[in-house]
């Protein structure tokens, strides 16, 4: 994080926030703001010229991230942040493109785009705020809602099983995969810095509370959720992605699971097509 100067009367991230748009739409106790803040802190920490960044979001609560960052930022259609980011990155590989969006956006409607961008090792950073629910539409079941949890569309409990997101990212070809929760903000910020500097497709899943639409239905208050994040998680770098199912009773594994070097499509395109 940036070191605030003594007697500084503004928040250290102020230069990256569209402050005229505050307060943001995120509810009291929502973790998206924290993850967003970690992302901005990471952007600052890289020391890279802000003009060289672009943030792309899809639709949903997390998808509003692009609207608050003082960068060239794009709030696209539902699920389409990754192909939009792909267009930006391929057309101008000198840019650092960050996709900031939610689990519903990236893994249900946008699932196909995610696996293909990972397969290509597209040099973008994908931050997925996983709050286990469709928050903005009022708490419907998501592809990440734990089995038997309640939602607006699973009033008797979720009969389905959720995705293991780091496993999917790994299996699809992502070259940087990590998972944190929003209260692990230092690790999270460090991880974002690594991911931005990583050449290739980087993916960070961030577990985050949705007190209104997930917590309320599942009788868990936001502070208790955060305590669960603190107490029922295990940091285990390089853990086997197949063993990363989310079960707070057993303990949820956090850490960096994949960090490998592979060529990216922009550099390959130049080699294969342009310098032929």
């Amino acid at each position: 994080m940036a070191k605030a100067k003594a007697n500084q009367k503004v928040h250290p991230l102020e230069e990256l926030i569209r402050t005229e748009r505050l307060p943001h739409i995120w509810c009291s106790g929502c973790g998206v703001g924290t993850v967003f803040s970690a992302c901005l802190a990471a952007i600052q920490e890289t020391g890279i010229d802000h003009k060289k960044f672009s943030m792309v979001s899809g639709i949903g609560c997390s998808g509003r991230g692009a609207g608050y960052v003082k960068l060239d930022s794009f709030h696209t259609t539902h699920g389409r942040s990754i192909p939009f980011a792909t267009g930006i990155k391929m057309a101008n590989p000198s840019l650092n493109v960050i996709v900031f969006s939610g689990d519903g956006d990236l893994f249900a409607i946008g699932g196909n785009h995610f696996i293909h961008a990972a397969r290509r090792n597209m040099d973008i950073t994908v931050i997925c705020i996983n709050n286990f629910i469709y928050g903005m539409t009022g708490g419907q079941v998501a592809a990440t809602t734990p089995h038997m949890d309640r939602s607006a569309t699973t009033p008797y409990g979720n009969p389905e099983m959720p995705f293991n997101l780091p496993l999917m990212a790994y299996a699809s070809g992502a070259t940087y995969v990590a998972r944190w929760t929003m209260i692990h903000s230092r690790d999270l910020t460090d991880s974002f810095v690594e991911a931005i500097n990583h050449r290739g497709f980087s993916f960070i899943e961030v577990l985050s509370p949705c007190p209104i639409n997930y917590g309320r239905r599942n009788k868990i208050k936001s502070l208790d959720m955060l305590k669960l994040f603190a107490d029922n998680t295990i940091i285990k770098n390089n853990a086997d992605p197949a063993e990363l199912d989310i079960d707070f009773k057993k303990g949820v594994v956090l850490g960096k699971f994949v960090d490998i070097d592979k060529p990216t499509p922009d550099e390959n395109y130049e080699k294969v097509c342009m310098m032929r």
Partner: peptide, 19 residues
């Protein structure tokens, strides 16, 4: 330690080194 600053979802709190 800046932890409040990092955790706050609202950019509403930050700390600086005291003189």
């Amino acid at each position: 330690c800046h932890y409040c600053e990092l955790l706050c979802p609202e950019f509403a709190i930050y700390t600086v080194e005291a003189d």
